[in-house]
Design a protein around this nucleic acid. Sequence first.
DNA 1: TGCAGTGTTGCTTC
DNA 2: CGAAGCAACACTGC
Length: 293
Amino acid sequence: MPELPEVENTKKSLEKLIINNYIINIWTDTPSLIRKNSLEEFRNNMLNRKITSVKRIAKNIIITFDGGYALLIHLKMTGHLLIGNWSIQKNKNKYLVTPKSMGALTDKMNGYIHFIFYLDDGRELALSDLRKFAKLIFNTEENIYKEAGIYNAGKDALLITLKELSAVIKLSSKNIKTFLMDQTKIAGIGNIYADDILFKAQVHPLRKANSLSLDEIKKIHISIKEILLFATKIGGTSISDYRDIKGEKGGYGDVRMVYRRDGKPCYVCGSLIKRIKINNRSARFCPTCQSRL
DNA sequence: TGCAGTGTTGCTTC
DNA sequence: CGAAGCAACACTGC
């Protein structure tokens, strides 16, 4: 599940690997992932332009091209990008995509590759997406920023100051769990990190945002930075499908504190981690460490 | 075996 | 207007 740490790592890898390259061909078996354009427009407009930069806005990856164009990629639930080489076989109406190289790229996630961007030096950039929710848009850079800013993007979770966080929290009557996952309020946090952030800050997920004390907001602010930076450093979370650009799994799943640990003992006090529904999503927390309502 | 759970976003409905 | 529900899709686990 790509949240900020996974998208940030992908962005950093792309920055090292594809700037100054050209995309010379595109293969896909799922053109429906392209929004606002036909496959033909998408292909014809993108090919043979030089890649000039890679950015992250919230959970979006933006690849810019010479001439003021940009490609937006949102990985949604199960998308990830891979660099490698693949061969494609057509079997009736189905395509079989298999990696030519060995190692992490033989991972089963290779079975879900739906886009391949062929680079001018022989390497290939692939999009794997088990559930096919990812979104791709090619347009002028300006229009792409409008698109990425659909949310009236909240401040990036890595950049938001205590003052800014405090100001938006005080305006919200929602519970803090829902608030943290609202991309218009603060950008980059999803279910995995929201649960762990609130555990570290020792705040109950159902606490009303505008009821939090300055001390609690401080703890949340510190936890956001520490957890997202640490998770980024160790390669993100690969509990289900996320892989880095070389196909390797991230380490945060092994050190997570409460996410998907319901029924298991809290690492701090030993109480059993609870699971409740908030906003129709699972929320996990320690009933002892995060008891105050 | 069938069905709930998984989680991001955007569209529809109220 | 904001909030809530649900669809997009495929696989896992009970």
